[in-house]
Design a protein around this nucleic acid. Sequence first.
RNA 1: GCCCAGGUGGCGGAAUUGGUAGACGCGAUAGACUCAAAAUCUAUUGAUGGCAACAUCAUGAGAGUUCGAUUCUCUCCCUGGGCACCA
Length: 946
Amino acid sequence: MKAYDHKKIEKKWQNIWEKKGIYNAKNNSPQPKYYSLIEFPYPSGAGLHIGHPRSYTGMDIVSRKRRMEGYNVLYPIGWDAFGLPTENYAIKTGKDPRIVTKKNTDTFRKQLKSIGFSFDWSREINTTDPKYYKWTQWIFLQFFKKGLAYKAKININWCPKDKTGLANEEVIGGCCERCGTKVEKREKEQWMLAITKYAERLDKDLDDVDYLPQIKLAQRNWIGKSEGAEIEFKIKHNPSLTLPEGEGEMPRFFTTNPELWKVLQDRVLEMRKNPTNGEKIMWDLLRRNTTEYHFRRQHIVDRFIADFICVEKKLIVEVDGDIHDYKKAEDKERTKILNQLGFEIVRFSNDEIIKNREDIFQSIILKLNSISSEALSFGEGLGGVKVFTTRPDTIFGATYLVLAPEHELITNLKSQITNFNEVEKYIKEVKNKTEIERTSDDKVKTGVEIKGVKAINPANKEEIPIWIADYVLATYGTGAIMAVPADDARDKEFAEKFKLPIVKDYKKADFEDFGKKITRFKLRDWVFSRQRYWGEPIPVVHCEKCGIVPVLEKDLPVELPKVKNYQPTDSGESPLANISKWVNTKCPKCKGKAKRETDTMPNWAGSSWYYLRYTDPKNSKEFASKKNLKYWLTSNFSLSFGEGQGGVDWYNGGNEHTTLHLLYSRFWHKFLFDQGLVPTSEPYKKRTSHGMILGEGGVKMSKSIGNVINPDEIVKTYGADTLRVYEMFMGPFNQSVAWSTESIIGSRRFIEKVWRIGERVLKQKNFSVPDLKPVKNSEDGRFQSKIGGMSQNSSLVKILNKTIKKVEEDIEGMYFNTAISSMMILATEMEKTENVQIEDYKKFLQILSPFAPHVTEELWNTLGEKKSIHLSSWPKWDENLIKDEKIKIVVQINGKVRAEIMIRVEENEETIKQKALMNEAILKYLAGKDAKKVIYVKNRLINIVV
RNA sequence: GCCCAGGUGGCGGAAUUGGUAGACGCGAUAGACUCAAAAUCUAUUGAUGGCAACAUCAUGAGAGUUCGAUUCUCUCCCUGGGCACCA
């Protein structure tokens, strides 16, 4: 046997495996399936990072173990190749991103193959392949058809120098990542996906999946479900406002502000003196009615004079003279404003009143009866404002309201607000604030009181001031809060700054007493547009006549055309906008002139469904056949699509993707499930994550620090098996660990040791008949005889069986480091033991094979096995061989270890205690003292308390 | 500020229904083999004191519960990651 030459061995077996296709998954096999998944890489120009193999080896070990357990395993790979780095490279160099991507994926493929992952390469996919993104576009159209993809004007990050919209991740500290210019906010129309429609299910269904607890928590925090109450606060005029002296008396039912009242009052008096015929009749009717309803005439509401009004019911009765035929539009506007303030309006002409006075009166009474009693509480006439709170119990402590500057109430109350100029100025200031200023660390609270109006706290009926401030967000809740400065740090800070009252031992309220229970989410709809070149074109056209029209499914994919320049246009559109030949097209509906959408999709799109494509990567008729989806996601052909259980069996990936990618793909999957297109309601049954590999010394690996490790170099010098074992051994799989080239040697030595044992085992096999020489049992020093060449219950067999069990369990829990540690112990033991049985050695090779697939395959083959070790059956451990009949227990005095004794497992507690108390060393310590208490922990220790 | 994960020898890390702290590996020291080196093997390797047997101290800090705490409780400090005024 030759010396261990990793270069030869690894190349040799990689070729054989590929030629035989031993890792190719079989569709619809009667075998049970197992679908294990890693996040497909972005093929960057820098080549494979040393961190990639960590995650891939972890799942490779799981996949290989599953194959040995008899599963038909799908462990696929592909490329998530759309995205910014390639596009930026294209902008800089003018090279076609297609060519760059091809070059990068070629490098990545070669590198991954050199590490010996058991990927099914026949299912390789690429998100930038038109045959793939045809289906990304197709899924988008399904969203569009269900109304879940829509266009909306939203604020985006805008770089005024580059004249382009920026993704959040391109904004570093409020500045453009590329040119360093301060980023502005700009309103633009964007495509949105309505993920918020799924917020409740995305949160709730986490109960049923097997994700690491921290992953579930991160998802839940991101979705941000909170339960609270919506409470309405009535608004009224500030009663402290009085008219200037000598200007008359304040009316009892004041429904406008004093300035307007002053202006309009004369006109009111004049109108009362000179009623029209219709008005006269109406006033007689309403005044003399015998019902409980009380009417007033010519009453000022907001900026208008209402003819007749029942203030308690907020009903206005208008009597229109001939002149009203000419000002219908004005009346309409007036009605709209009054409706917003909560008034209902009925309108009659002079003629109608003269002819049908009794009928009209009856209809007014009926109308009044139909208005709910809630309106009766009205006495001031300005409606209310709804606030959202998770702490309705603190309502007695609410001493003021705060509205977001964007709140609609501010324009609605315009005529009531006495300091509108000041308010408007503040709103403008807030709008001009950049993102950095609004989110800066000091975050000084600003705000303005809305003067002229007050809110009524429904709990204690107290009048409280209303403020606007930008610490209240328009996009969350109702855009308005009740401030409880005694209880909330932010409200307290605000109240202290603006000298607002803080009430400390307020009464707790019951949850249901005010307002109604309501659920809110932090999650926002997904901004799905990018003004970029290197992404999937959004497959719709804009028609002059028909508006937004989806591209016909038969015309998919809408292929990304070649362009000369990858820079976005001056107006911030994608470079696609410059290709008029591509942009100008026909409307699929009316065949008239139309323009193509030039926005592209974000690179989250292709990765939201890629695991589905792996089940049927070459299908040109569907994104994947139902048959394959059923098999790979549920292992059940007869299952109807509505049943919902299953998904990818095990998905491992980075912590950086536990919110966005995971949430997005769960959202797409649930949508497809609702359309009957996938058989399960969740994409992934189980999700784990791996930690990062940092540079030596625990800092980030980066070109600028110069601590980047090239995996090719490691594979060349130490071999793929050593790299794999080292990356699994270096620390806990889910934690970040610092790379140490110095330490790799330990993993290499371990493999060489396994090789040396193999050499010896092979020699025995070839040159000697299994002999009957006794083998020394290292544990108790006795010699054990062997029967028929097999050593029975030797210490080695015991360790072997224990190790099989441990490795088996550790792989399932991803405790790869301790699995390797236990195999190192086994190897050391085997090397010490003479006459290692070939069958025992082979079992060792088998449990090591998922970690070090090449060297174990070579040794397995050398020992005469024809079939691949990776297709062999996972060895079974024997409980009886693991059991100890004698064990060592520790004797403590007052918790300190003073002696060790050997006991037989069947000995009873009393005997063992006696043994401990009679122990020589213990007697010495106990001299002259009484044992107060003797504690026995089974198979562990005895503690004597003195 | 909030949330999450961590803090154990010179270094990476073991040890969880509370039960021998430091498995395994790297590094270091000494020895065997060798003309020599490399490789390999063997031994030692938390700190302090002691010739030694051995003793004492030690898992970020401090308290508590317990016969017994790296593990449980409380308070605090530090490192890494995420969120960022979400009512």
